[in-house]
Design a protein around this nucleic acid. Sequence first.
DNA 1: CACGTGGCATAACTCAGGGTTGTGGGACGC
DNA 2: GCGTCCCACAACCCTGAGTTATGCCACGTG
Lengths: 300, 300
Amino acid sequence: MRLRNIELFHAVLTTGSITAAAKLLNISQPAASKALQHAEDNLGFALFSRVGGRLQPTQQALLLRDRIEKIIQDIHDLQRLTTNMGQPNSCPLRVTCTPTLALTLLPAATVLLRKSFPNVTAELSTQHSAEMCESLTLRENDIGLTLQDTGHQTLRQRELCRGQVMVIAPPGSWQGAELTQSFPVGALASQTMIGITVRDALGSMLQSHLSKVEPAPKIAVSVQTYQLARSLVANGEGFALVDPFTARGGDAKSVQMRPLKPHLDVVLYAMHRPDSPLNPVQKRFLDIIRQLAQRMLAQR
Amino acid sequence: MRLRNIELFHAVLTTGSITAAAKLLNISQPAASKALQHAEDNLGFALFSRVGGRLQPTQQALLLRDRIEKIIQDIHDLQRLTTNMGQPNSCPLRVTCTPTLALTLLPAATVLLRKSFPNVTAELSTQHSAEMCESLTLRENDIGLTLQDTGHQTLRQRELCRGQVMVIAPPGSWQGAELTQSFPVGALASQTMIGITVRDALGSMLQSHLSKVEPAPKIAVSVQTYQLARSLVANGEGFALVDPFTARGGDAKSVQMRPLKPHLDVVLYAMHRPDSPLNPVQKRFLDIIRQLAQRMLAQR
DNA sequence: CACGTGGCATAACTCAGGGTTGTGGGACGC
DNA sequence: GCGTCCCACAACCCTGAGTTATGCCACGTG
């Protein structure tokens, strides 16, 4: 079974027809047809039963499916890695961050960086933590920013700064002295809230805290990204628990915020590969991020 | 990077020279040389630096190494699987068992089976538990016999019978009524014993039991298979803790045995793939194994 | 130093396999 | 009955992986 056959088999399996698979691989339909037969000849058993001019995977084909997909995935990853190793440091700063940080820290930091290095080019992207790790090891990006401790063993993960989980509320919810104090978690009882269903460490921490409140808060809308929660809060849909960066992101007047009590720490991490030391641009960038984050978290 | 290139790269990496790699892949040296250059051209960076007419892997090559090896392994496994799927049920009974059971249960059971099915052919082999699981899923074998609970999620593992951990000793160590009683674990204190360094569940259980005995038994010789322990005991090297099958295997007079007290259960499992139901021969074989094992464990 | 040796690269050639276009035929919907 | 969709077959083409023959370089050795 040559690699080409494996790819073809996979393509046919996913698309369901030889014609579509051929289109996917950019070859002609007869080529695909012939190759598939060739593969079956080599294997000694049929991968698809031709019934009524259509293809139907055999029992054996389904048994091979998982293995094949894994190999395809690995090969694909290898390609990604090698292509990225081909152009070493084509771009001095390739950063990826979680969606949470995309609208607050990242753009501001990039603008500041370009004041120090006017000619520098940068590539920015957003990814969730799991993809972030993949992307870093495959050298598609050099720096990752996240609020989650991934526990990745080969990637370096260093703490940049820490803040607290915040309660955000529609404008006018709190007044005067209230605004300068922490918000006791018990006061969330029976409150209308936006649910957080993010599957990372912070998300599950927030969920477990909410579930302990008695009587339970009323949750009508649940969201998967903190930004959405903030928008909903700004529109008066209720309170929400969010990370301190989302709380301060966007228009300052659109929501009110107070730290949750008891304090729940949120840590901003930078991740990078351990092998290649950071270049000056990248170091400066992380400096800027740290300063920016600290300043942002200091202000109310 | 074509699969052929990956194989070649791997071969060069392991053998250390193009010539040797070419021999390994059964191609000529120039073919390998050209292919490697081709690969490097495609990749855009060098995999090996030619220094003094010899090859030396570059930094990048080492980064790719693990990934490449994994892919090679997976492809190889796939080949194994497909070749075994090609000849479905060429042999009605392909059994693999741990070395522990190889000399006691398996031969006897096979002989008995061939009295019921004189024309049947069988393939027997021994493997450790991890390889056993691999071999079963890759369809190189249909039935596996082991004393360990592998916790494998896709393979069926069913209990055939259970016995107890036995203490074996050189002939003449015990006399009269002693021989019919259990052997209290405390009596192992300061005794000369054969150490067991098997890394499976049973092995670590035995080790932890031995380590609790005060004062510690004297362990001069450690072995990785129970058979070896039995041979050493038979030669008067000391006592040993072994599974009940090893205890009863071989010449009955060569060692004495008594169950350990407190009892430590040892379970005989049969493993097979869940998809293909067992054929009559295989069912009969498992019946014979069970009967044989129970009879063996009943006798002293 | 001259020489043999071991290892890689180059050159010229062969050939099979993977690709193409063109065509035919069966199953299905209308 | 006809158009459509999809697969298989045929004839042809051409790239690329393989071959043998040979040269070059570095190194060890008498």
